[in-house]
Simulated scan of single mutants.
Amino acid sequence: MEHEKLSIMNDQHETIGVATRSDVHAQGLWHETFHFWLLKREHGTVYLYFQLRSPAKKDFPSLFDITAAGHFLAVEQPSDGLREIEEELGLSIPFKDLTYTGIIQDEIHLAPFIDREFCHVYLYMDQTEHMEVHLQKEEVAGLYRAKLLDAQQLLTGTCERIQIEGFEMNTSGERREESREVHVQDFVPHEPAYYEHLFHAINQFLSQ
């Protein structure tokens, strides 16, 4: 995975070459990623879903993050991001059913790791009564959801803790339902501007 070839960009989102994934993160090179956010409305309440990253992950183990996400390889198009949804969550969703909200720039600096991303952000409102989710245990340890308003307040800094609900998979593949109180430190440290753009896009999406 560290030897995958990614397109690299300048800060104006102009492609300037190709580099390995390990070099991209070591040198803090701009690159493109796919971000998929899953929503669901139940009894008038909208929920936003977060994956719990596997404790075996090299970066940000056991933290909550985007529902499904991944890097675009140098030869890939935005629709290739669907593989991340299928691999991590086991959901097959037509690309035409995703709502594209644009590109959000995001930077995470944790020495010796510098992640500079042009994030292609997509939203999807699940309409099924029961989602058939199958997690990729090497990547994802669980799937949780928060009330949208709670998530927005926590991740934009207007409250300190919220309650979330979901499930985790143990090492033998058994599913365990959970309810947890979480703080912002329990989430991958995306920039505040990322979340401001995200929640603005979600609220626009819901008002359509």
Rank of each mutant, 00 (worst) to 15 (best):
M1N: 08
E2G: 06
E2S: 09
S7K: 14
M9R: 11
Q12L: 11
H13M: 12
T15W: 01
T15I: 11
I16A: 04
A19R: 14
T20I: 01
S22G: 06
V24F: 08
W30P: 02
H31C: 13
E32N: 12
F34H: 07
H35R: 02
F36E: 01
L38M: 14
L39N: 04
K40I: 07
H43F: 03
T45D: 12
V46K: 01
L48Q: 09
F50R: 03
F50Y: 15
R53S: 09
S54N: 11
K57H: 11
K58M: 05
K58D: 04
F60H: 15
S62V: 00
I66G: 03
I66R: 05
A68N: 09
H71F: 13
L73F: 14
P78S: 06
P78K: 03
P78E: 04
D80W: 05
D80Y: 08
E84I: 00
E88W: 06
G90M: 03
L91R: 05
S92D: 09
S92W: 01
F95L: 04
F95M: 05
K96S: 12
K96T: 03
D97R: 09
L98V: 01
L98H: 10
T99N: 12
T101K: 14
I103F: 06
D106Q: 11
A111R: 06
P112D: 15
I114F: 08
I114D: 06
I114Q: 10
D115K: 13
D115S: 13
R116E: 05
E117K: 13
C119D: 14
H120F: 10
H120S: 09
Y122D: 02
Y122C: 02
L123Y: 09
Y124H: 14
Y124I: 01
M125Q: 14
T128W: 00
H130I: 12
M131S: 14
M131H: 00
M131D: 00
E132Y: 00
V133F: 01
L135Y: 08
E138T: 15
E138R: 11
E138W: 04
E139T: 10
G142Y: 10
Y144E: 06
Y144H: 12
R145Q: 14
K147Q: 15
L149G: 07
L149C: 01
L149H: 11
Q152N: 13
Q153E: 14
L154S: 09
G157P: 01
C159F: 01
Q163R: 13
I164E: 05
F167M: 02
F167Y: 15
E174D: 13
R175T: 07
E178F: 00
S179F: 01
S179M: 12
V182K: 06
V182H: 04
V184H: 07
V184E: 10
Q185R: 13
F187C: 03
V188C: 07
H190T: 03
P192E: 02
A193F: 10
E196W: 04
E196L: 11
H197T: 02
H197P: 00
H200I: 00
A201F: 08
N203L: 10
F205P: 05
F205A: 03
L206Y: 12
S207I: 05
Q208V: 10
Q208T: 11
